[in-house]
Amino acid sequence: MSTIRRFLIVSLLCTLCPLALAQGDAFPERPITVVVGYPPGGSTDLTGRAVADQLAKKLGATVIVENASGAGGAIAAQKVSKAAPDGYTLLVGANNEIAISRLVSSSVKYTYKDFTPIGLIAYQPMVLVASAQSGARNVDDFLKAARAAPGRLSYGSSGVGTALHLAGEMVKQQAGIFVTHIPYRGVAPLTNDLMGGSLGYGVFVLSSGLPHIRSGKIVALGVTEKQRSTFAPDIPALAEHPALKNMDISVWFALMAPPGLPAPLAARLRRALDEILQTPEFRKKLEETGARIAPPGVDMARFLADEDAKYQRIADFAKIKE
């Protein structure tokens, strides 16, 4: 490389670096929009609003929550993946729209790599349940019944390709059983059929299923994470059973930005998120819903790659791509 060319490159870098740093220091200068892919009231919306509220305080900015619902959260994720990388459009999303959607629907063209990950926010365990009329009281009962009549038992989820569906398929994959999946349009009809006894088994987010479990209307067989939930320590982890020892899947929430976000802006947002996750008010709000706050320092690149590989294995097993 010639001396003149080297001088020009160094000069350009010296010019750009202060501009990038200044950009990070000046941010934010206008309102920030946090996009959520579901209607108000659900767990992703609650998480998004809690993050937005604290982000406004940490950054001294106006933060607006936009509910761009539809296509299982993919509309919101697609919108953020195409937004300007200036830090003013962010996504609070779950694993469904960030990492799972493209594995189950050919119409979804983005991947988790089409975002700048800011950080993991929290996890929500799921729970495998049985109707009170099924006669199943534990994992052994469920597996025995499934193996005695392959394909005759059925379990419900809130829809094809959701995290609840993949959790059910992971149970089947791990245990080597054949149980028919029944997709529902949401949790309400799933709950009604379970409590009425017309459906034998189902998968819930733990916080949604717990009131019905506590009332005795449905029976908890086990949570889907590797360890028991501190929110309901009396419910065993499915992984405690030898046939399901590798069972470990949850609903998680993350803060994501468009691809190409300048490093100073990404660093500013990561610092703010780290502070938010330690805020007692924020932790209390999410923990009351059964969420587990993400630990500090999660390597998001590795985390997302590992999750993507896990979901790919389950999607291939279930043959659910549309």
Rank of each mutant, 00 (worst) to 15 (best):
R292C: 00
A267Y: 08
V203M: 15
G200E: 14
G161N: 07
R5V: 01
S198G: 09
L55S: 01
L153I: 13
A188Q: 12
N246Y: 12
Q227Y: 11
V80A: 04
P85F: 11
S107W: 10
P150V: 15
D306H: 06
L120M: 15
R313W: 02
A26K: 10
L12V: 15
L221S: 04
V10T: 10
M1C: 10
Y88W: 11
I314L: 09
I213T: 13
G202W: 01
L19P: 00
V139C: 00
G216N: 07
A145N: 06
S101D: 13
G42R: 02
S250E: 09
G260H: 14
S107K: 14
G70W: 12
G135C: 11
E240V: 08
A220G: 09
E307G: 02
P258H: 08
V80N: 03
T111C: 06
D274E: 15
T180V: 13
L286V: 06
I64V: 15
P28W: 05
C17Q: 09
V63Q: 09
T180A: 14
C14K: 07
F253V: 02
G72Q: 12
V92T: 10
G216T: 08
P125I: 05
M195S: 06
W252M: 09
L190E: 01
L91H: 02
I98S: 04
T180L: 13
L166F: 13
C14S: 13
E225V: 06
H165N: 15
G70C: 14
V139D: 00
V129S: 04
T111K: 07
K319A: 15
I314H: 03
A267S: 14
N192G: 12
N246F: 12
A232R: 02
N192K: 14
Q23L: 14
V251S: 11
P262C: 07
C17Y: 10
G176H: 10
M300D: 01
E66Y: 09
Y311R: 10
Y201E: 06
Q312A: 15
R292S: 11
A266Q: 15
G42Q: 05
L210F: 11
H241V: 12
S105F: 13
L12P: 00
K79L: 14
P258V: 10
T191M: 13
P150R: 13
F204P: 00
N95H: 11
V63H: 09
V104K: 02
L210H: 06
V34T: 07
L12R: 09
N67R: 11
G260N: 14
L19E: 08
G70Y: 12
N67P: 05
T44R: 02
A122C: 15
M247F: 05
S208F: 04
L46P: 00
T289G: 04
L265E: 01
K285P: 01
P242I: 13
P295C: 02
V127A: 10
R228S: 10
A83R: 06
R268Y: 08
V80H: 00
L304A: 11
V34P: 03
Y155P: 01
L244K: 01
A237R: 05
E287L: 06
A61H: 04
L164I: 01
Q124I: 04
